[in-house]
Design a protein around this nucleic acid. Structure first.
Lengths: 144, 144
DNA sequence: GTGCTGATGCAATGATTGCTCTATGCCAAG
DNA sequence: CTTGGCATAGAGCAATCATTGCATCAGCAC
């Protein structure tokens, strides 16, 4: 799976690494998150998460928000470009899997497709919501 | 001295406590500072400083800025109202001291005035500068 | 005396930085 | 084609900063 995603990623012109893509997926599936949440989700140090998000923000794939309610927190959300990228990769992955299934005996199609679908569901595809209410756009990304 | 400042403060309509006023003076004399600097200067815990600044910001006497260079820092600076308040208190204090000096023997005037002036200088009256360059206005003060 | 607001301290949270390393990708010199 | 140099990303750790939550105290208005 990861290999397929990596290949889809490589085929894209956008210069996004696998860890960066994983972060985008977390945002796409779980909705706006705090840097610490993404870091935990990815199993890395918060500082690593911060810097990864810096790179994603520099590429305009995510945006930072700061809450008026809890000033120490920062909220991250996908930009249209970020969402588009995730969808594009997903699209390519689906295509690739389709070709994969096509190459099997006709009778296998149904069970295999079903299995892949379950797998996908297990990974979790939580839709986006309207969290960002009350979050002000934060300062610019620092110059490299 | 403190007593005089306190009295000048009490005479004002602005609802500012002594600790708050001290914070304003630090900002007026040393220029824009970080919350932690003010707290140190006042010898209180950073959390106390943060909350004091919250109250001052709520009263529109100071403003918060967040740097693009160091995103964890917040910079505080006086608003026009804040500066005006400090000046007004200073003005009143000068008046009071003048009356104080007036009441002494004519020959004492010179040395006493000089002494007070030195004292004032010792406390330090650093003028404001153009720091705030590169600092974006930060989010609103959270509703109480 | 009661209730409210401001001032404080301490511990816990969150976000970032600075420093240091390792892994990769790329490019020119052999 | 392989080697050496370089730039960038990914990581972890410790140190900084700003804030919050919680609890205590003091002073003021009723």
């Amino acid at each position: 799976m990861v290999a397929i995603a990596a290949r889809s990623l490589a085929g894209l012109d956008a210069d996004v690494t696998l860890p960066q893509y994983r972060a985008l997926v977390v945002l796409a599936s779980r909705g706006p998150q705090r840097p610490v949440d993404i870091s935990t989700e990815l199993g890395v140090n918060p500082s690593t998460g911060t810097r990864m998000c810096d790179r994603l923000a520099r590429k305009k794939l995510i945006r930072r928000y700061r809450s008026t309610a809890n000033r120490r927190e920062v909220r991250l959300s996908l930009t249209a470009a970020g969402r588009e990228l995730v969808e594009e990769v997903t699209r390519r992955r689906v295509e690739e899997l389709s070709r994969f299934v096509e190459g099997m005996p006709q009778s296998w199609h149904r069970p295999v497709t079903q299995a892949l679908r379950s797998l996908s569901a297990a990974v979790g595809e939580v839709p986006e919501s309207e969290w960002w209410l009350g979050w002000a756009d934060v300062d610019e990304v620092p110059a490299t």
